[in-house]
Amino acid sequence: MRPRLIALVAAITVACPIVAAAAVIGRPTRGHRVVDGGMVPIPAGDYRPLYAVSGGGRVRVATFALDRQPATRAEFLAFVRAQPQWQRGRVGRNFAEASYLVDWPGALDAGTGVELQRPVTGVSWFAAKAFCAARGKRLPTLDEWEYVAAASETRRDASADPVFRRRILALYAARVSATLPVAGSGLANTYGVRDLHGSAWEWTLDVNAGMPADVSHVAGRSSGVQGRRVSCASAAIGVADPANYPAFMRSAVRAGLNARSTVAGLGFRCAAGSAAPTML
């Protein structure tokens, strides 16, 4: 285990110096020692977003690093111990809705045993962002997340593979938000990243990319453009691949969110390194 970890850190160091720093800084400083799943280096590449970008092309994603698995309840418990302003009952309503961490037995009680290893859900974008920042990380951009999520166990871009698509849809259909699988228990894709499809929905840095401009917390490349597309059959207008139902489902989930939203079944993972996607 230990040599593997060292090898991983070494690999990340080569891939991205910032990440190596993050891996050190990111250890919890107080409370129980919690070992996270570590990060995986993601090589640069490109992917085809659901909604065609200008020029109709693919989007370039630079090298970065991504958490191997979603943040767990145990990790988030350590975070709220260290930063009490993020505890349930203390967090301001401007930063999280009333159902923030509502499924925890107590503000400093995230359950016991296996529950602690499930992905933390019911956290707002603000809280997820703060969690990552405390570890010297950030949330992945929409492009980064989708780029990695396009990978199957064997291929970096399996997004157009009907078999892979069917498997994802089956995973989405079988999802029960109250009992998500233990973080890291799902299949690893070709990068070694787990649980992107069989577990919680996940926040991205581009909150409300794809929402109408009536929500103020907008960031990212595609903000404001796709708003109305989430509803009705017009959602298919301008779509690169209208049979990519998994991507539509994720897009609809994101469209309903604003940065305060807290939803059972919505968690996150962190990223680190460059976040400057460019269009080809």
Partner: peptide, 13 residues
């Protein structure tokens, strides 16, 4: 949208 645009509702909302 026949009400659709005004009613996109998250779980628990």
């Amino acid at each position: 949208g026949g009400g659709a645009h005004a009613s996109l509702t998250l779980p628990g909302h």
